[in-house]
């Protein structure tokens, strides 16, 4: 017990000696929000991204490195809608950081500014891992990126008022490039309308809605449950009646069930980056959409 005061004295000295970072320190829960914060914040922000495109955002653990990064974050940019319910509350509780607590301006939930699809009428775990507020995988509809960009800019300006003009300017530039790209994407994606596809998880619903694709089946029997043999066999039979053009999977999904089904149905599997970093070409938000569309167009033609 005697060493207690000494250790805390050391701690306090260490804290005082630590350099104060002027830049807004952002911890993004998923790569897409890290990329968006980068578009708006440019070089005036420091961004850490908690997860990668190869990780299932539902199944992240509040590991020590994330707690350490949450400690000094001025702003946490997450999806919300219960996507990170298994780990973000622990980061908040263990970080000793008042700024990123629920209800504080330093905790930003993208799903709160977007109309959510697939809001379940009944919330019951017998239906799988359903999200009561709706489908949280909102970032694959570019109109949602637009909505989140404006809200995020406002939040960043609120937290770092000195940079407001800079953030606003960058947001404007980003949005004009984004709308331009969106018009282009919608044009080249015309052949994708009505394209019948099998998905892995309900994580592509916003993309499907935006492009007018047709989801004819899902590898997961229920959201969050791994594909079972019985369900896959049933899916093969179903695909004989209503054929699909391809089996989609996101970068973080297990490739084997998708490959098995594709082999049985005689259709290709298409790996989609899902988020920034999911493929080599998905280096930023623009690359994410370009690559996603190109991969889909390759099977449509």
């Amino acid at each position: 017990m005697k060493s207690l005061p000494a250790s805390f004295l050391c701690s306090i000295l260490l804290m005082a000696a630590w350099p104060a970072f002027a830049a807004l320190n952002i911890l993004a829960c998923e790569p897409e929000w890290g990329a968006l914060a980068k578009e708006i914040g440019g070089d005036r922000v420091r961004i850490n991204t908690a997860t990668t495109a190869l990780q299932d955002p539902h199944r992240i653990e509040a590991r020590p490195s994330l707690i350490a990064r949450a400690r000094d974050a001025d702003l946490m940019v997450c999806t919300g809608a219960e996507l990170e319910v298994g780990w973000v509350p622990l980061l908040q509780a263990q970080s000793g950081n008042p700024k990123i607590q629920v209800g504080q301006p330093g905790f930003f939930e993208a799903a709160s500014v977007v109309p959510l699809l697939e809001r379940p009428e009944r919330v019951d775990r017998s239906l799988g891992d359903v999200h009561p507020s709706g489908n949280p995988h909102i970032h694959l509809d570019p109109r949602n990126i637009e909505r989140v960009a404006s809200a995020l800019q406002e939040r960043m300006s609120q937290l770092d008022a000195a940079q407001t003009a800079y953030y606003q300017d960058r947001e404007k530039q980003f949005l004009s490039r984004w709308r331009e790209a969106m018009a282009r994407w919608e044009k080249i994606a015309a052949p994708l309308k009505g394209l019948p596809l099998v998905v892995y998880h309900k994580d592509l619903s916003y993309l499907i809605g935006w492009l007018g694709l047709r989801e004819v089946g899902a590898l997961e029997p229920k959201p969050g449950l791994p594909p079972s043999t019985a369900h896959l066999t049933q899916l093969v039979a179903q695909l004989k009646r209503t054929p699909a053009k391809a089996v989609l999977r996101s970068a973080y999904n297990d490739p084997r069930p998708a490959q098995w089904l594709a082999g049985q149905a005689g259709i290709p599997t298409v790996l989609l980056p899902f988020t920034v970093g999911g493929t080599d070409k998905a280096g930023d938000l623009f690359g994410l959409y370009e690559d996603t569309l190109n991969r889909l167009l390759a099977v449509a033609n």
């Binding site: 207690l4 250790s7 701690s11 490195s65 707690i67 350490a68 000094d72």
Partner: peptide, 15 residues
């Protein structure tokens, strides 16, 4: 009482 150090390495002290 717990204290988390402001470092990238997770360092936590508690009493």
């Amino acid at each position: 009482l717990r204290w988390l150090a402001p470092t990238d390495l997770f360092i936590e002290l508690g009493a």
